[in-house]
């Protein structure tokens, strides 16, 4: 199948710094397939510079506003910012309503900020399956810092921990978020906890509850004990403190050689994932496998052949390095 896009041309314009080309390449990554791989091959050597911060927390905690405030803060220090804002895809229609830009209006006219809204699409968790790839692209585009805002429900909390250097968990005093956070496993993955809406009368108590549960957390000698900060995105308070804590966590990672180790870990898991994807696609596309399976299913239906035995037989046929039909699942 011929490419829908002129990838070479886009990459050339991307390297010149054209936003439109970068935005189009993100679309290519979202759509996956051979084109996406071509893009990732081309930009890989330029990645590894941007610091990635993930933001998670329940819907309505004020993630977008806080991310927007932080972006402005980092901009005042001249950092180039990429923002990835993820909203859920409707399981019914496949469509999505991406509304995070509403709360990021003040950033729109600043060319140093690139905001991209992603729908979660096929992902079961609250982030998009191509979050890593979009981060790479923004990284290669010269962004110093990438802020990733998750949907804030489901598995997103755990997934974001694999993709970000620092995970910021945003909570609000209302409706016992602290307890919810503990239940949802947020306590395990958060590097920084934000009690947003600090103007709320219960904010201080809620922040203290979080502090208490962090104290109970087992942290190895010299390890990172999560920090708590109070902010008000509405009144623009505590944003500088939060930025300071993110910096502090980054220094901690750097001082302990964790940045490098984390990167290695991430790259290893990406190789694994990419390999699995490719194998899966190859198997799905293999006519030989299809033929054998359909030819022997009667035996399985009849109870004469167990599914596992059939697969063991197939195992000998499909091996890595052997060309089994088309390599891409078109």
């Amino acid at each position: 199948m011929s490419s829908r896009y002129d990838i070479e041309g886009l990459l050339a314009r991307f390297l010149e710094g054209q936003t439109a080309a970068a935005a189009r390449l993100i679309t290519v990554l979202e759509n996956g397939g051979e084109d996406a791989e071509k893009v990732l091959d081309a930009i890989f050597s330029r990645t590894g510079n941007a610091y990635r911060v993930g933001f998670t927390g329940p819907p309505g905690a004020g993630k977008s506003s806080l991310v927007s405030r932080l972006a402005r803060r980092f901009r005042s220090e001249d950092a180039k910012i990429g923002i990835i804002a993820i909203d859920p895809t409707s399981p019914f229609s496949g469509g999505a309503l991406l509304g995070d830009r509403i709360r990021m209006q003040s950033l729109f006219e600043d060319p140093g900020v690139f905001v991209r809204s992603l729908a979660s699409r096929g992902s079961l968790g609250g982030i998009s399956n191509c979050t890593d790839e979009v981060c790479d692209l923004m990284d290669a585009f010269g962004k110093d810092m990438i802020l990733i805002e998750t949907v804030g429900v489901g598995q997103s909390e755990l997934e974001i921990a694999e993709k970000a250097h620092t995970v910021v968990v945003i909570l609000v005093p209302e409706s016992g978020d602290g307890i919810q956070a503990m239940k949802a496993g947020l306590m395990e993955i958060g590097d920084i906890f934000v009690m947003n809406k600090s103007d709320h009368s219960d904010a201080e108590v809620a922040a203290m509850e979080i502090e208490d549960s962090i104290k109970l957390k087992q942290v190895p000698e010299g390890g990172w004990r999560p920090l708590v900060v109070m902010t008000s995105a509405k009144e623009d308070r505590g944003i500088g403190d939060l930025a300071g804590l993110i910096r502090k966590h980054r220094e901690y990672l750097e001082d302990n050689d964790l940045m490098r180790r984390k990167r290695k870990k991430i790259l290893l898991s990406r190789v694994r994932n990419a390999l699995m994807d490719r194998m899966e696609r190859r198997l799905r596309g293999s006519e030989e496998v299809k033929r054998i399976v359909s030819g022997r299913m009667e035996e399985v239906y009849a109870g004469r052949l167990s599914p596992y035995r059939l697969v063991r037989e197939l195992d000998g046929i499909v091996t890595i390095g052997r060309s089994a039909g088309p390599t891409h699942g078109e």
Partner: peptide, 24 residues
Amino acid sequence: GMEVIYTGLHQTPEMIAESAVQED
């Protein structure tokens, strides 16, 4: 079944064009 980016009220043409480009 579409992905819809809604940017809210009171948008200037500059904001609209920049959003359209970034969101491709």
